[in-house]
């Protein structure tokens, strides 16, 4: 609301005006800011700096060059793996959001309890690895899916793309990501009160128009959040591609972890990590831009 308050004075004029006045709410903001600073910003800067160093036998030489980036730029293998990672990310994010959105809609507008939500979140109670191996038994050569299809007479031989393939990695990653996407979308949709949907219907919008003109623009943050969250985690994951992805499923995440864990070339690994991060930033900008072009962004004027 546009109420003009008179300028507030926080301290009498006699107080030294050079003393720093902390912004309101700094006490609450400090722990998360400190956390991000120490566990994200500093490591990321360290990696960024390291990416311009060179690795020699058992040591890192700070000789400031862009050799690592040039090497990455020319390496077709990295780009193939990076493309695979981004492909995983794209399919996982798209499928997760498409699966989670109707469920979130149901939880927010139709369900009388949050039971469905809690059931979806229940999968977090089991370990990541256990769930990966569960999918191996489901998708394996003699697994549930293949035996069922063979017993039904629909196929003669097991479907080999179901396990140790990018498809298998995507299926498993979707399973991991859907609850995250669901949680984000539920909290976003809870801000879109049912009254807005009724108002839109009342003003002549069909169900589809209510979705595209009211719900999606209003839960834009949640949409971007759910999509990018699953995209980034899926594109950067190196465990599922390793355990489920097979030979074709090698991703840049896997190559990066290899540089750090087995090869020991930290500068090259850092440069790869920064390359991947830049790709993810581009994906983010593309996705936000797509929503903007599709008129699904808030804060736009159409007149």
């Amino acid at each position: 609301m546009s109420v003009d308050f008179p300028a507030r004075r926080f301290y009498p004029a006699t107080v030294n005006p050079l003393s720093i006045r902390l912004p309101r709410g700094w006490g609450l903001a400090t722990p998360p800011v400190a956390f991000l600073l120490f566990f994200f910003v500093l490591p990321a800067i360290t990696l960024f700096v390291t990416s311009f160093f060179a690795a020699q036998a058992f040591q890192i030489v700070p000789d400031w060059n862009v050799g690592n980036y040039l090497r990455i730029f020319k390496a077709a293998g990295f780009w193939k793996a990076n493309f695979q990672g981004l492909t995983n990310g794209f399919f996982v994010a798209t499928i997760s959001v498409l699966l989670a959105f109707p469920a979130a809609f149901y939880v927010v507008y139709r369900a009388k309890t949050n039971l469905i939500l809690y059931m979806a979140l229940l999968s977090w109670f089991s370990s990541y690895l256990v769930r990966i191996f569960a999918w191996r038994t489901i998708l394996g050569t003699n697994g549930m899916v293949n035996s069922a299809l063979i017993n039904l007479g629909l196929i003669d031989a097991p479907l080999d793309f179901l396990i140790f393939s990018p498809t298998a990695a995507i299926i498993t990653l979707v399973h991991i990501m859907v609850p995250f996407a669901l949680l984000i979308l539920v909290s976003a949709l809870q801000d879109v009160k049912a009254e807005y949907l009724e108002a839109a219907r009342d003003l002549g919008a069909t169900r589809w128009q209510v979705l595209t003109r009211v719900i999606l623009p209003m839960c834009h943050k949640g949409l971007v959040g759910a999509f990018m969250f699953s995209f980034i985690l899926a594109a950067g994951d190196f465990i599922i591609p390793q355990l489920m992805g097979g030979r074709d499923g090698i991703t840049s995440g896997l190559l990066i972890s290899g540089q750090f864990r087995s090869v020991g070339n930290w500068p090259l690994g850092s440069a790869m990590a920064w390359t991947l991060m830049s790709c993810l930033l581009i994906v983010y900008l593309l996705f936000v831009g797509l929503l903007y072009v599709a008129r699904l962004s808030p804060g736009r004027r159409y007149h």
């Binding site: 839109a200 919008a205 808030p298």
Partner: peptide
């Protein structure tokens, strides 16, 4: 038939003009 809602239900992602234009754009 159109309804004036108790808490107005104006769309926060649109400005005043676009809110009023909503039914015509539909």
């Amino acid at each position: 038939v159109n309804m004036l809602f108790q808490r107005y239900a104006l769309f926060p992602h649109l400005d005043v003009f676009d809110n009023i234009a909503f039914p015509l754009r539909i």
